Computed example of a mutant assay.
Amino acid sequence: MRLHHLLLVLLFLVLSAGSGFTQVVRNPQSCRWNMGVCIPISCPGNMRQIGTCFGPRVPCCRRW
């Protein structure tokens, strides 16, 4: 019976950790929380866009 409880806790942790990676970055604060930077031009070559900061024109960029 203890094994079932352990597996249930493990399943809960896996599912709750996975949900954090599916959140959309849409403002400067969530951009910083995701280790990104708001850049008013397109992302440089060593960075990729992970969302937007102030609307569709300002990307939130993060290093690879």
Rank of each mutant, 00 (worst) to 15 (best):
L15R: 06
V58E: 06
P44W: 14
L15H: 05
G18E: 00
F12V: 09
P40K: 10
V24P: 00
N27C: 08
G51L: 01
G55H: 05
R63G: 10
R63A: 13
R26L: 02
V24G: 01
V37P: 06
H4G: 07
G20C: 10
T22G: 15
Q29K: 06
N27W: 09
R32F: 12
R2P: 07
L3C: 01
N27I: 06
A17G: 02
F21S: 11
G45P: 07
F21K: 10
G55Y: 05
V37T: 01
S30N: 05
C53W: 03
Q23M: 03
I41M: 11
R2E: 14
G20S: 12
P28H: 03
R63D: 11
N27T: 05
M47R: 02
L6V: 11
S19M: 13
M35D: 14
C38D: 13
V14M: 10
M47T: 05
S42T: 07
F12N: 08
V14C: 10
R57P: 03
R48A: 14
G45I: 08
S16Q: 11
W33T: 03
N34S: 13
N27M: 02
S42G: 11
G45E: 11
S30C: 06
L13H: 10
T52S: 01
P56S: 15
H4S: 06
H4C: 07
R63Q: 11
W33Y: 12
N46P: 10
L6Y: 10
H4P: 00
C60A: 02
V37Y: 06
M47N: 07
P59W: 00
I41Y: 10
S42K: 11
W64K: 14
R48K: 15
L8K: 10
L13V: 12
I39P: 02
G20D: 12
F12Q: 04
T22V: 15
W64Y: 15
F54A: 05
C53R: 03
I50Y: 04
R62W: 06
R63N: 12
C53I: 00
W64H: 15
C61N: 03
T52H: 03
L3K: 08
T52W: 04
M47W: 01
P44N: 14
P56K: 14
P40R: 03
R57I: 09
G51P: 07
Q49P: 12
H5Y: 14
M35T: 13
P44Y: 14
V37C: 04
V9C: 13
V25W: 02
G36C: 01
M35R: 15
S30H: 04
Q23P: 05
L8R: 09
I50E: 00
R32P: 00
N27A: 08
